[in-house]
């Protein structure tokens, strides 16, 4: 597995570069306990953010933002009941065995399934927030992660609409932007991030990205073999629009079901084209001005 090299990592760190660290969030074993949300808040002193009662299943924390760096999504799906469906008995039994083997997350038999997933900043290989930051407050750490320097950020807000995942946001009373740091302070002390440590089912796995990729491929293969044919890895590959992520996921349905974009893109890839258009428009304006001034009577 490649480590998905970024623009600044490992190159600019020389021999001080550490292996690229990340999260593999295996949503197939998430039980929706929200321990990650709580642990993150506690460790990082993330302020309270009460959204009220949403009625969106068990999710009352709604979304990632300046005051929520881990967010657990709850999806309730009605799925056709395997056994009453017209499937061969052996296949139905195999699926039952899959449930016994611990590779199925929903209550068998009631035609209903829960999907739960803990979302987090993706620490993209090509990070749009970092690319557009005009102050250099956002930077790439020696672990390949993306972190905001709170003493530099001036709250211009450019990173907010630049993020294709809607992760980073401004804290209103403070003015600056905030997001997951992948517990940069804990990493420096060789500790795992608070959310991963708190996760009771190992749904959040922390480690060297290359090793996590290997683990994830095996897990996906097992789930596929067990009949979870909609299981997929999300952001695990370098050829997607963000060059792969430092925090990638195993999902049991399409990304948009979890509120994740199916094809996120770092618009930096188009920045040449954007500057060319802006330059051409500037020249056109110049030509228009010359025509207006010299193209008739004084």
């Amino acid at each position: 597995m490649t480590q998905l090299e970024t623009v600044a990592w490992p190159g600019s760190y020389g021999d001080k570069a550490k292996p690229r660290m990340g999260f593999f969030t295996d949503t197939s074993v998430c039980i929706g306990c929200k321990a990650c949300e709580v642990a993150c808040k506690e460790w990082n002193h993330v302020p309270m953010a009460i959204e009220g009662f949403t009625g969106n299943s068990y999710d009352n924390s709604v979304t990632l933002g300046a005051d929520r760096w881990r967010h657990v999504a709850f999806i309730e799906q009605k799925v056709p009941l395997d056994v009453t469906e017209d499937v061969p008995l052996v296949q139905a039994a195999e699926r039952g065995a899959a449930a016994d083997g611990g590779v199925s997350t929903y209550q068998e038999g009631d035609g209903f399934r829960w999907l739960m997933a803990s979302d987090v900043c993706k620490h993209c290989t090509h990070a749009a927030c970092l690319d557009v930051c005009p102050t250099g407050a956002l930077f790439r750490t020696e672990y390949g992660t993306v972190v905001v320097q709170e003493d530099v950020c001036n709250g211009c807000g450019y990173c907010v609409p630049a993020c294709p995942f809607g992760v980073i946001d401004q804290r209103k009373d403070d003015g600056r932007v905030w997001k997951c740091t992948l517990c940069y302070d804990r990493l420096k002390d060789d500790k795992e991030p608070a959310c991963a440590q708190a996760c009771p089912t190992n749904s959040i796995q922390f480690g060297e990205l290359a090793e996590l990729h290997g683990r994830a491929e095996h897990r996906l293969a097992h789930l596929q073999q067990a009949g979870q044919d909609k299981a997929r890895l999300y952001l695990a590959d370098g050829q997607d629009g963000i060059g792969g992520a430092g925090a990638f996921f195993l999902l049991l349905d399409e990304p948009e079901v979890y509120g994740l974009p199916p094809d996120p893109v770092d618009t930096r890839r188009d920045v040449g084209e954007i500057w060319a258009a802006a330059g051409a428009a500037a020249v056109a304006l110049g030509a228009g001005l010359v025509t207006a001034v010299f193209g008739g009577r004084r």
Partner: peptide
């Protein structure tokens, strides 16, 4: 199109 409880995928600008 599918969505997560109708929640936005992107954050609106803070401008």
């Amino acid at each position: 199109t599918t969505s997560y409880h109708g929640q936005p995928v992107l954050k609106e600008p803070t401008w």
